[in-house]
Design a protein around this nucleic acid. Sequence first.
DNA 1: TCTGGGGTCCTAGGACCC
DNA 2: TCTGGGGTCCTAGGACCC
Length: 378
Amino acid sequence: MGGGPLDHSSRMPIALIDCNNFYASCEQLFQPVLLGKPVVVLSNNDGCVVARSAEARALGIPMAAPWHTLKDLARRHCVVALSSNYALYGDMSARVMRILSQFSPLQEVYSIDECFLDLAGAQPSPTACGRAIHTEIKRLTGLAVGVGLGTTKTLAKFANHCAKKRLEFGGVCPLFEMSTVEADRLLAWAPVRDIWGVGIRLATRLESMGIRTALDLKRAAPSRIRAAFSVTLERTVRELNGEVCLGLMAGPGARKQILSSRSFGQLISDLPPLEEAVVSYATRAAEKLRQQGLLTGNIGVFLRTNPFRTDLPQEDRSLSLTLHPTDDTRIIAQAALKTLREIYRPGFAYQKAGVLLADLVLGVCRTFRPHHVKIAAL
DNA sequence: TCTGGGGTCCTAGGACCC
DNA sequence: TCTGGGGTCCTAGGACCC
């Protein structure tokens, strides 16, 4: 062994491309007066921060922070806070994805602002292709992207992280063509929490075992990780070592569930406004269902109070109903209402409800597609 | 009396991602 | 006063079957 040619497949690069500060960048693009200013985009009901411009990040505004806790800081530094505009972000996303699709025959759109591309065979080289992506997206859309190239998805994700955090890469990190020594130096620099699939809980447990950096995780024995954690984290370890465990999936896989839920602007105790909310969620969920050409055989409704309000009695109930597969808004809304009435109990201040469609199967669309359903008709 | 071993399906819950 | 809205995968345990 040793001395032979490298296994070609182990050097096939996968690219992970994502947009920097996507929502905030979209807003700055369409309102150039915001360029150079600290901008945050807020979630529905303007509850939390879901995106920050570089300037807002520099002020130390954390992701997902409740907006009300930041008001003073925001006033002092003239932070511009915007409600989210998903129509705008969706449109920009489609433009970016269309451009990226021209760089590879195999694209997996992973989220609204990122995708994987298979760059095996890219001309003149994968790294040159990565640089072309970086400049072309900027030129054609005005958006800045980071590009990471690795031999597995997990390594491509990590390379992308390096491309954004370390200026010497100029936005493109070709991790796949680095020597082991160079690559391990980068992995040693990153806390284990920066690896895709390691959240705060796993990071805490890993650290207590002495696994503190990404390199520590790469060097951990897969069997030990599997025993102490799960097959998911074992795969992460293998992928850090260049073993492909997660394939690229072309096209969006068939949905397994469709969820439509929302926090209310204010707490709700009475049944009628809850019915109104649940019917509107059911209507939206049914629209998504038909868009994907699916039928649902199981409708669930959940209802819960605000878990942060420890001063109030807590309630969190859910119930689901099996039915003949359908995509009919009337039937779905009716089932959702029936379920809601079963789980509703007076005396609680509810904060959130949702409708979950499961047991999805491929099917043909029905004819009746109302935009609105009146509760009285149900 | 002894109370197996393997399979499936379902649900709940934990953890993660963006 | 004020804490998002989507999703995914995995595991454990119970019910039921032969």
